[in-house]
């Protein structure tokens, strides 16, 4: 279980990283926390010619206030920081709620926010969270400079996202939190820290039935992280939670995996909706 030969390049700043990606394109893979990439290399599931190490690039690991008033989260922010950072707790509490569900402490100390988003694993927590928060992905390339993509447009398929081979995901912005915004996150996994069978993030503001806004996003419920619009609409309009659960079960298209059928995943998604709705409704 050793990787196929590859060249290791340590990017000393962002410009250097973008030059390396421009030069090698499809043959290069960026390395951040390595919690997915290193196993994939060792399993020879990926065989890049060049690995571009992002760990020495200054600024990529910061969380700042964005011009829009929201949060600008650097791509190399470790999962652990999102669980503990006061600004995240204040402005995007959903991320702090979701962080502890990611794997185990050792992985949370190494793995990164941007790495998880760019890998576009439909079973990962962050893609569903940025969908629920209506975040914006920020990409950069030498040829085209900065490009911004709404989370809703970013995730295109299984491990497939709107990132060109010469682009680097440099961060993600989430909008400023409304004063009455509530959020919750929950998932079901066989063992603590495993990839979830299904997970669900919910963000709500306003009174149901009186112009409320509800966003529901799921992980493990399809080939991409997905937004449950019908279920969210039922809840926003003050509908019954069971009506929302039925809408959810009808609108998602999960695939069965080694341990759960699609039918069981639908059942679990409905359970998670009830569970998290109770939290945000009562908050």
């Amino acid at each position: 279980m050793k990787p196929a030969p590859f060249r290791y390049e340590r990017a000393h700043d962002l410009q250097h990283a973008l030059e390396l990606l421009a030069e090698h394109g499809d043959d290069a893979l960026p390395l951040a926390g390595g919690q997915s990439l290193l196993p994939m290399l060792n399993l020879r599931l990926v065989r890049p010619a060049v690995v571009v190490d992002l760990n020495r690039i200054e600024g990529l690991g910061d969380i700042r206030t964005a011009a829009s008033g929201g949060l600008a989260i650097g791509a190399r922010v470790r999962h652990r920081l999102l669980a503990t950072d006061p600004a995240v707790r204040a402005h995007a509490p959903l991320l702090a709620q979701a962080a502890p569900w990611i794997a185990h402490p050792a992985i949370r100390h190494r793995g990164t926010f941007g790495g998880s988003l760019a890998l576009a694993d439909p079973a990962a927590e962050w893609p569903a969270c940025v969908l629920a928060l209506e975040g914006t992905l920020v990409l950069a390339s030498r040829a085209r400079g900065e490009r911004r993509v709404a989370a809703a447009d970013f995730f295109r398929g299984l491990y497939d996202c709107d990132r060109e081979p010469d682009e680097l995901l440099v961060g993600c912005e989430v909008p400023a939190r409304a004063a009455d915004s509530r959020s919750a996150f929950a998932e079901v996994a066989r063992r603590h820290g495993d990839y979830a069978a299904v997970g669900l993030a919910i963000v709500a503001r306003g009174m149901p039935g009186r112009g409320a806004h509800v966003r529901v996003a799921l992980l493990g419920a399809g080939d991409t992280p997905c937004v449950a619009r019908a279920a969210a609409t039922v809840l926003a309009e003050g509908g019954d939670i069971e009506a929302a659960a039925r809408a959810l079960v009808a609108e998602i298209e999960p695939r069965g995996d080694l341990w759960y059928s699609a039918q069981a995943k639908r059942h679990l998604a409905a359970h998670l909706l009830r569970d998290t709705w109770r939290t945000v409704r009562d908050a």
């Binding site: 659960a245 039925r246 079960v249 341990w259 039918q263 069981a264 059942h267």
Partner: peptide, 18 residues
């Protein structure tokens, strides 16, 4: 004894949602 097997044996998956 997986969760799916329990849900199935208990008839939960076939029951009306909720």
């Amino acid at each position: 004894v997986t969760p799916e097997r329990i849900l199935r044996a208990a008839g939960v998956l076939d029951a009306e949602a909720g």
